[in-house]
């Protein structure tokens, strides 16, 4: 065929362009030292405050210097109190997250995949969503008691809505054109869900789960404010009542570390599922 030479030349040209692509990936992977610039401001302010208290320019009773916060954190860790409280908080978030996320996924999937079910479910759920979740607290305490059940329920409600909305929205926004590819290859409903809908929905599902987890950590504080005897939220309340700002700040730092760690773990666990989307690196 006369055009073969031209077409071969063309493919090798494209091949060359594709071979050149990895260099940009390597560049992206190289460490960018400017990231460290972000540490400058908080460390600078912390050192400034430390110096101001050390040299007697400020009292540091209500706003303790960093050294005292670290000492408090260290003390709590030494006595094992920190771990007890952190573990309690983490347990509540985990249980609430699992319940909220599972029901959010199930109802979101139902509402996203069937027009009838959406018209049945969605108005009610949207109405419930309009209620600020904290408003449920008195009712949950009446219904479920003052102990764990009411706390976990509050967290589950907080986690449920972003997950439900994210999953339902993700299914509704799956590209019709890709679904048609499934129809052309005569996939059954189950195959279509498994081979096209599920992978197409995953990136948005991960985002929904992450925002759900974030809200879970927000609501665990609210839950622990209402009469807990353990948990990082209890440390906050205790610090306020006993006038120990260093304990409050230590608990806040523990919250930040815990939340960030949980988010990173979730991200790492779901990364293999969405690798095709957020990196140009070759598979495996």
């Amino acid at each position: 065929m006369t055009g073969n030479a031209a077409s071969n030349a063309w493919s090798s040209h494209e091949g060359a362009a594709a071979l050149a692509a990895p260099t940009s990936t390597e560049k992206r992977r190289a460490f960018d030292w400017r990231i460290l610039l972000g540490f400058f401001l908080p460390i600078f302010i912390a050192l400034l405050w430390e110096a101001a208290v050390t040299f007697g320019l400020a009292e540091g009773r209500l706003v303790p210097p960093p050294s005292r916060i670290i000492a408090t954190l260290w003390g709590l860790a030494q006595t094992g109190e920190l771990w007890t409280h952190a573990w309690m908080t983490l347990w509540r978030v985990l249980v609430g997250f699992v319940i909220g996320a599972l029901s959010g996924i199930v109802l979101g999937a139902l509402s996203g995949s069937s027009q009838t079910l959406r018209q049945l479910l969605d108005p009610t759920l949207q109405a419930l969503r309009a209620i600020p979740s904290i408003a449920w607290v008195p009712l949950f305490i009446l219904w479920l008691g003052i102990f764990e059940a009411s706390k976990v329920a509050l967290i589950a409600v907080g986690v449920f809505f972003p997950v439900y909305l994210g999953i339902a929205g993700a299914i509704l926004s799956v590209d019709r054109k890709l679904v048609e590819v499934g129809h052309v290859f005569r996939l059954s409903r189950v195959q279509l869900a498994r081979r096209i809908l599920l992978p197409a929905v995953l990136p948005e599902a991960v985002i929904a789960l992450r925002s759900g987890l974030g809200l879970g950590f927000m609501f665990v504080v609210a839950a622990e404010f209402m009469g807990a005897s353990e948990g990082l939220g209890y440390l906050l309340v205790d610090g306020q009542q006993m006038g120990k700002p260093d304990q409050i700040l230590a608990a806040i730092i523990a919250f930040a570390l815990l939340g960030k760690t949980a988010d990173s773990l979730l991200l790492a666990a779901t990364k293999p599922l969405v690798r095709w989307q957020d990196t140009v690196r070759e598979r495996l």
Binding site: K177, L178, V181, V184, F185, R186, W276
Partner: peptide
Amino acid sequence: SGPHPAVGIVFQEPRLLPWLS
């Protein structure tokens, strides 16, 4: 009636599944 196994189609857009190699 409906998609047939002996009929294949190439669309205007590639419509590749982005999560598959």
